[in-house]
Every structure is written in structure tokens, then in C-alpha cells.
């Protein structure tokens, strides 16, 4: 019985990496940005994850990024790491990283340098959780495109 318990979460560390646990427990940039230049909502109605992402743009460069909302550990950690990553990046940088992160969480393959975001490489083994990891990324793309309606990843065919 005890061995079984000890072994229980061996594999789960693929999904819940220490960095992810840290960011979900203490999300960075977890606040509103009243002076933001654009924002978008990421909402998955089936599971209830609901994030709002705020960006302050200076020309093409993202100066500030923050988020609010509620969701599971994976979606919160993803939004937290995303807001850290996008600061100082251009729209083109973010678009490129969106494609890299998308490939990574759906296939497990890491193409190019994704930095800390590599902690999400294990998500592909949990198909039901891909939508959680990718929600903030769809929201940031929505914000950059001026999307008014909430974006969702629940119909995403990985």
C-alpha cells in the first residue's frame, strides 16, 4: 500500500514541474493594469478557467504585462510565465513563441530556445490539459489582435 502511494505521483512531475508549482502558488504579474493599451479574456466555459490578460505597448514593444482571473494550476502558471516572458518583446517575438509553445505542448518537441517555458514540454502527455497550458497564449494573441470576444481553447484540435 505504502509503496503504491510513494510511486503514485512519479510521472506527474512531467506535468507539475517545480517551476509550474511555484508559479501557480505565487503567480507573477497577478494584477490588473489600469493603463494597459490592450487586453483580452481567455475563457474555457467547460472547465471554467477564466483569465484576463493586460498589455502595455510602446510602439511594437510590450513594456508591461499582467493578468487576473482564476483557473487550474497549469493555466495560472502558464499565464504567470507568459507575462514574465513577453515583457520587452515585440509582437513578432510573441507570435513566434506562440507557435513554438503550441508545438511544444501538443507534441512535446522543443524547437529553438524557449527558456523557462520548456517546463511545459510534458503537457503533451496529458491531452486533457493542453487547453489549460495554451489558454494564456491564445489570450495574448487575442489582445495583440484587438480581439473583443473572449478566446477559448476548448475546441482546439491539438
Amino acid at each position: 500500500m505504502k509503496t503504491w502511494v510513494l510511486n503514485m505521483f512519479d510521472n506527474i512531475n512531467d506535468l507539475y514541474q517545480q517551476v509550474i508549482l511555484d508559479h501557480c502558488k505565487q503567480p507573477r504579474n497577478f494584477r490588473e493594469l489600469p493603463a494597459c493599451t490592450c487586453s483580452a479574456q481567455g475563457f474555457n466555459p467547460l472547465c471554467g478557467d477564466n483569465l484576463k490578460l493586460f498589455l502595455t505597448l510602446d510602439g511594437d514593444v510590450i513594456r508591461e504585462a499582467a493578468f487576473t482571473g482564476s483557473g487550474c494550476c497549469i493555466s495560472k502558471a502558464s499565464a504567470s510565465l507568459l507575462t514574465d516572458f513577453v515583457k520587452g518583446k515585440t509582437k513578432a517575438d510573441v507570435e513566434k513563441m506562440f507557435a513554438q509553445v503550441h508545438d511544444m505542448v501538443t507534441t512535446g518537441k522543443v524547437a529553438g530556445d524557449v527558456g523557462k517555458l520548456a517546463v511545459f514540454a510534458g503537457v503533451y502527455k496529458y491531452p486533457a490539459r493542453v487547453k489549460c497550458a495554451i489558454l494564456a497564449w491564445h489570450a495574448v494573441m487575442g489582445a495583440l489582435k484587438g480581439e473583443q470576444k473572449p478566446v477559448s481553447t476548448e475546441n482546439e484540435q491539438a
Binding site: I12, C47, G71, C72
Partner: peptide, 13 residues
């Protein structure tokens, strides 16, 4: 702990 994280971990068990 979000319910979906509970369910994902329980599933591993």
C-alpha cells in the same frame, strides 16, 4: 488546489 488538478493527480493514482 483547483478541482482539475485534483482530478489529474487522482487519475495518476
Amino acid at each position: 488546489v483547483h478541482a482539475h488538478d485534483v482530478v489529474t493527480l487522482a487519475d495518476q493514482g
